[in-house]
Design a protein around this nucleic acid. Structure first.
Lengths: 115, 115
DNA sequence: ATACTTAGTAACAAAAATAATACTATGTAG
DNA sequence: CTACATAGTATTATTTTTGTTACTAAGTAT
């Protein structure tokens, strides 16, 4: 994909990078600072160990988050947003606000979806 | 979804609504005004007829876009953003800008993060 | 020595999203 | 009558994503 980036709509590109099922919430969580793997697990217990690892790996591969391992036992691994990753913050924030708007609206018009 | 909106992170809610593979680009396209089905098809020939229909239906069901049919043959159907749908515009715009940033970056560091 | 800890991997299963294909409707043009 | 146009549906297949389960590593506390 890095060789044909001009061909696709940039909106699509962004979705490709942050569109995983849990990536949005992971990024939202990391906005408030570095987190250990276990902290993320506790925050979203519904996300299994394995899946969380997968999502983190993909974000890491894109350069969005950084992974820091401490050489100790039991292991300690911290995840944080990279400088590049932080450029996503405004989007994540807006998405949070819009989600809230959506939810308010859903509560107000539970049976209609038109405008 | 609509019955347990409080339980999930609003960022997740937003992804649920606009996270389909082609929804972002559809919304981006509709930002510039009402479009016929066929216009959308032509703009993204890679998206098949059927898939485009599906994505449009889902956006319609969420109240993001409106579908207007003209009673004529051959059929004419127009899609446009609802007022509610327009509240997504800032997000889509930011996503477009971020995608461009990402692509520039990918061109600069072609070996650091790929896919 | 054994169990516990945290983070990770591997193999596999299930679900969801996407795609391909063929089919419908109906007025107009030939 | 036949072909064409546009938008839609139905059925099935494929791919992608997500989830489950079981296993590993290695130091510490018991």
């Amino acid at each position: 994909m890095a060789n044909t980036p001009e061909k696709k709509c940039p909106v699509e590109t962004t979705f490709d990078v942050i569109g995983g099922k849990w990536k949005g919430v992971i990024l939202y969580h990391l906005m408030s600072g570095t987190k250990r793997f276990g902290e993320l697990r506790k925050t979203y217990p519904q996300v299994t160990h394995h899946i969380l690892t997968l999502q983190l790996r993909e974000l890491e591969r894109e350069g969005i988050i950084a992974r820091k391992t401490y050489n100790q036992v039991p292991p300690k691994v911290e995840y944080s947003l990279t400088e590049f990753g932080k450029t996503l913050n405004p989007i994540i924030l807006l998405m949070k606000e819009w989600g809230e708007l959506y939810n308010e609206r859903a509560n107000q018009h539970p049976y209609s979806s038109g405008d």
